[in-house]
Computed example of a mutant assay.
Amino acid sequence: MIFSEIFHPECDPIGSDDAPYHVVFSCLQWKNASLEVMPRAAKQTFAVIYSDTVNYHVTATLERAYVIGAMSAVRLIAVHQDTLHLFLDSGISSTTLQEIEALWTHSHIHEFYSSSSKFRVC
């Protein structure tokens, strides 16, 4: 299964029926965790935890976030029903945190997932 043209799985999904699944993805990233443009692209990795399958809406949401630069600080995404929980790099500043929240909120990225979806930045 191809998840995305942007995000590439680093391993097969791991999990079982009585525990959440998870998979690690990688992509090229032009911004660091503080949203500053880097002189050279680097490999970013992040994990996605989910209970059933990662559906098209999750993929579309993450791709949209990537395109507008809202993924560079993301290290873990937990998908639960209509909510995406974003866990960010521990080294980001409070200003960067506000910028990331604004990107996700004002660009309506989460609406790609579901019209009633929410996101939480942790």
Rank of each mutant, 00 (worst) to 15 (best):
N55L: 08
Y56D: 15
H57Y: 15
H57R: 14
V58N: 04
V58H: 07
T59S: 11
A60T: 07
T61N: 07
L62H: 09
L62I: 09
L62R: 13
L62C: 07
R64A: 11
A65Q: 00
A65S: 01
A65D: 00
Y66R: 03
Y66C: 06
Y66I: 04
I68P: 00
I68D: 01
I68T: 00
G69T: 01
S72H: 02
S72N: 07
A73S: 13
A73W: 01
V74G: 01
R75I: 00
R75L: 01
R75D: 00
L76S: 03
I77D: 00
I77C: 00
A78C: 05
H80A: 10
H80P: 01
H80Q: 09
H80I: 02
D82I: 10
T83V: 14
L84T: 08
H85A: 10
L86A: 06
L86R: 07
F87I: 03
F87A: 03
F87Y: 12
F87K: 08
L88K: 04
S90G: 08
I92N: 06
S93K: 11
T95K: 12
T95S: 10
T96W: 09
L97M: 08
Q98G: 09
I100R: 10
I100W: 07
I100Y: 08
E101T: 13
E101V: 08
A102M: 15
A102P: 04
A102N: 12
A102K: 15
L103R: 14
L103W: 11
W104K: 09
H106Y: 15
H106E: 13
S107Q: 13
S107G: 05
H108Y: 04
H108S: 06
I109F: 04
H110I: 15
H110F: 11
Y113G: 00
Y113S: 00
S114Q: 09
S115D: 13
S115H: 14
S115M: 11
